[in-house]
C-alpha cells in the first residue's frame, strides 16, 4: 500500500499523453468508453436539467415562448409566500422529529434482532417485510389503520382506554400519523444497523464483560460508538430523504386536496409539485428547488462537521 503511494505515478494532472505507452492509451480509451454511458446520462439527465432549472429560477417560465428574466424576484417572492413557510415548517417538523425517531427505533429493533434467540431469522423477516411493500400501497394501508372510525390503531388505543385522535382530519395528528407510517417501513435502516452490529468486535465486548461491564454499559460504551459511522450514514440519508418527502403525502390525503388537512401535510416537495405542474409556475418551482438544494447541502455539511464529535472510525 505505502510502497505504491510513494512510487511516482506517471499519471499526472493535467495528463501528459505523449509520455503514455500504447497499452496505457488503449486502456484509457476503453475506460472512457465504459464511462461514456454514465457520462452521457449524467450530462443530459442530471447536469443539464439542474443548470436549466437554475436559469428558469431567475425567470417566468413559458413553455412555448421565450423566458422572461426577472432577476431574483422568484426568490424574494418565495420568502413572502405564506405557503412556502408552511411547507418549510411541515418539512422541518418531519426532519426534526421523524428522522431521530426512526433512527432510534430502527437501532433499537436492530439490537433486538441481533440477540441470539430462537426464531431470530423469523423476526428479522417480520421486521423487514414492510419495506418491500410499495410506498403507495403501504400508505393506503395506513389510511385504513389510522381511520378513526374503523381503523385498528384507534381500536387498540380504545382497549387501553385512550380516545384515539382523528389521524387524518386533525392537522395536529396528520404528521405524527405519517411518521408512524415511516417507522413501520424502515426495514432498510434496520438491515444496515444489523450489519453494523455484526461488525462490532466480539473481543472488545468479551473484554468488557470480563471487566464486569453489564449489558447496558457494553451497549453504551462499545456498541453505540462502534456503529456511529452507520448512524451518521443513516442520519444523512434520512435527512435528505425527509426533505424530499412527497409520495406518502401525495397519497395520504386520499380524495382530498394536496396538503389536507389544513395544509398540515403540505411538504416542501408537494408545494413545489403544485407550483410546477398544477399552477404552471415552473420558474417559481425551480427557485424552490434551488432553495431546497441549498438547505439540504447546508444540513449535510453541518452534520458532517459536527459528526467528528460523535463518530468513531475504527482502524
Amino acid at each position: 500500500m505505502d510502497k505504491q503511494q510513494t512510487k511516482k505515478s506517471k499519471f499526472t494532472w493535467p495528463p501528459k499523453f505523449d509520455k503514455w505507452g500504447f497499452r496505457d492509451r488503449t486502456n484509457f480509451k476503453i475506460g472512457m468508453l465504459f464511462l461514456l454511458p454514465w457520462s452521457i446520462g449524467f450530462l443530459a439527465f442530471t447536469l443539464y436539467p439542474m443548470l436549466a432549472s437554475l436559469v428558469y429560477s431567475f425567470s417566468i417560465y413559458h413553455a412555448r415562448q421565450p423566458l422572461e428574466f426577472i432577476g431574483f424576484k422568484n426568490y424574494t417572492d418565495l420568502f413572502s409566500d405564506s405557503l412556502f413557510w408552511t411547507a418549510l415548517y411541515n418539512t422541518i417538523y418531519m426532519v426534526a422529529i421523524g428522522v431521530p425517531l426512526a433512527l432510534f427505533s430502527s437501532f433499537f429493533c436492530a439490537v433486538l434482532l441481533n440477540l441470539k434467540v430462537r426464531g431470530q431469522a423469523f423476526y428479522r423477516v417480520i421486521y423487514f417485510l414492510p419495506s418491500i411493500v410499495p410506498t403507495v400501497a403501504s400508505t393506503i394501508l395506513w389510511l385504513w389503520i389510522l381511520n378513526p372510525q374503523a381503523g385498528i390503531m384507534n381500536t387498540l388505543l380504545g382497549y387501553l382506554g385512550i380516545h384515539g385522535p382523528n389521524w387524518m382530519t386533525n392537522p395536529a395528528w396528520s404528521k405524527p400519523g405519517l411518521i408512524l407510517l415511516g417507522m413501520w417501513g424502515m426495514g432498510n435502516t434496520i438491515i444496515i444497523y444489523l450489519s453494523g452490529l455484526q461488525d462490532v468486535s466480539v473481543s472488545l465486548l468479551e473484554a468488557a464483560e470480563l471487566d464486569g461491564a453489564n449489558w447496558w454499559q457494553r451497549l453504551w460504551n462499545i456498541t453505540i460508538p462502534m456503529v456511529s459511522p452507520i448512524t451518521l450514514f443513516n442520519l444523512i440519508t434520512g435527512v435528505i430523504a425527509m426533505f424530499q418527502y412527497f409520495a406518502q403525502a401525495y397519497v395520504f390525503r386520499g380524495f382530498q386536496n394536496l396538503g389536507y388537512p389544513l395544509n398540515s401535510t403540505l411538504f416542501y416537495s408537494v408545494l413545489l409539485y403544485q407550483n410546477a405542474f398544477q399552477w404552471l409556475k415552473m420558474g417559481y418551482a425551480s427557485a424552490m428547488a434551488w432553495v431546497l438544494f441549498i438547505i439540504i447541502l447546508g444540513c449535510t455539511l453541518l452534520l458532517l462537521k459536527i459528526s467528528d464529535r460523535f463518530t468513531y472510525y475504527a482502524g
Binding site: W144, P148, A150, G151, N166, W167, N170, G254
Partner: peptide, 15 residues
Amino acid sequence: VDNVLAFSSGWADAY
C-alpha cells in the same frame, strides 16, 4: 366540529 370530523373521517376514501 370535532364530533362531525370524527364521524365522517375517511368517508371520501370509501366513495
